[in-house]
Design a protein around this nucleic acid. Sequence first.
DNA 1: GTCGAACATCTTGTCAACAATCTTGTTGAT
DNA 2: ATCAACAAGATTGTTGACAAGATGTTCGAC
Lengths: 223, 223
Amino acid sequence: MTDKLTGAAGRAYVANAIRQALRSGDLVPGQRLVELDLAESHGTTRGAVREALQDLAAEDIVEIVPRRGARIRAVSVEEAVQITECRSALEQLCARKAATRANEEQRAELLRIGAGMRQAVADGAWDTYSALNQRLHELVVEASGQEVARRQLERLNGPMVRFQFRLALRPGRPAQSLPQHLAIIDAVAGGDPDAAARAAAAHLDDVIEQLRSPATRTPVPGR
Amino acid sequence: MTDKLTGAAGRAYVANAIRQALRSGDLVPGQRLVELDLAESHGTTRGAVREALQDLAAEDIVEIVPRRGARIRAVSVEEAVQITECRSALEQLCARKAATRANEEQRAELLRIGAGMRQAVADGAWDTYSALNQRLHELVVEASGQEVARRQLERLNGPMVRFQFRLALRPGRPAQSLPQHLAIIDAVAGGDPDAAARAAAAHLDDVIEQLRSPATRTPVPGR
DNA sequence: GTCGAACATCTTGTCAACAATCTTGTTGAT
DNA sequence: ATCAACAAGATTGTTGACAAGATGTTCGAC
């Protein structure tokens, strides 16, 4: 357990640790990531950290400027909107395909998720709702069989964790998004491709609107 | 000129050299990329080559398997279709935005490209047509102001160069795609977002159909 | 002739030390 | 008090050597 994480193992470990720290707010945009510090605090070598940072840079999570090190990249509201617009385009594709291609088990799980979401909103169980939300998006992509789109969506979500986080916690947000999610579920489970695409588009248009409203903007510490 | 390309410079240089070699057919899918060989043939160090390979792996152009080195990744027809479906989703988004946001100069260039394409088809000038085609797609994305989508599309095109290449050279192909391109130009330059999205979708649906037809399949050497 | 085991060679993975560059803090002049 | 020049420290970039693993080859048994 106190073994030294070496090389390739450390690479993935450090990358995950940073992703996690970003999600939980331990790292904020603009923050410097010093190779030696990370190496020591995670029990790895500088080489492993270096490669982990390269990976994160490829995911647009950190920004590496030569000779000056790596920082957590700041995402502007405008960029968050553009990211969500791309998500919308890709998720419409997936929803449309999923409506045609989903198998019986997947359709059944969709319905279960829908029931769970209703219940979670009724109970005020926001963590549960958030988890179901994530699973719903995953499942639609999975059922669509669009491997390529799945990879693209993963990349898009990387830098967005902070915004998503804020959004889900906004009071009244689950109640607002519930009918949109149920519409997606109905259309996909019911096998109506056009309706599925429309429902996905409507949902993400609403997310964009929320992103633009000032309440969701999180102040970025200077420097 | 005979200077040794060191570190950061060599990294970009080698990555570009490989991309170029793939485009021109000097490298074929499945081919092994040995670090030391590449380092010597390009006058760099192994370290630089290593990083270049990481970059190419992030672009899905090469596949790195631990302890076994890097190979040019093979793209199946099914994957090419999925890539094009994603391109379709994103280019619809861009075409729609471009119809609204393009400035006068951009609309003028679109019309010039359209005229040039007509001429090129009439003259049988396929290289010119291919160049204009590329510029058209670029310009639509540029005019849309969708930086995020632009990056995503770049990534998607990386592994596709071979297929695109084949497609453009197929006899009769320019004549077939010309009206589709003109429809995109008309809609974007004319400021009709819905028509622009429809035209982009129609064009890429046709590309998908071409990809599926056996004539475009290029045999992949075993091993 | 074919199969398998031992061996030789090639290739990638890892590390530690060194060099180059940037950042920060201090000093001194105006 | 402000600023520029400088020095000390911190941080990243690069290299070369070695270790670990994979691949190919030879040789012998059957």
